[in-house]
Amino acid sequence: MKRAFLGEFEEVVLLTVAVLDESAYGVTITQEIEQKTGRAVGFSTVHTTLQRLEEKGYLSSKMSGATAERGGRRKRFFTVTTAGRKALMEVKNIREQLWDALPPQTLQLMGG
């Protein structure tokens, strides 16, 4: 099996989409990442990443929910696909394996 590759920011975005569940679209995702990570992320970066994730098949999207404050334009709502969930799980597993393999004294040094 081809190993899923997720960049760090991609992982963050993908996770955020999963967190936001039903209401994940450009604006909420950007705001969520900003609030949760405290990073000033540009909307354009988020948008490009979302597109890349969709191309990779980790996300799917559909258009709906036009509101007046958007000038009547629809939103593109994202949901994580099965492939996306698998990829996230895989990354999580690898991390956990690595954490588990950490010698206890090193863990203590890190303040864990």
Partner: peptide, 9 residues
């Protein structure tokens, strides 16, 4: 969606 998102943002 980009136009809409940007307006909202």
């Amino acid at each position: 969606e980009v136009q809409g998102d940007l307006l909202e943002l």
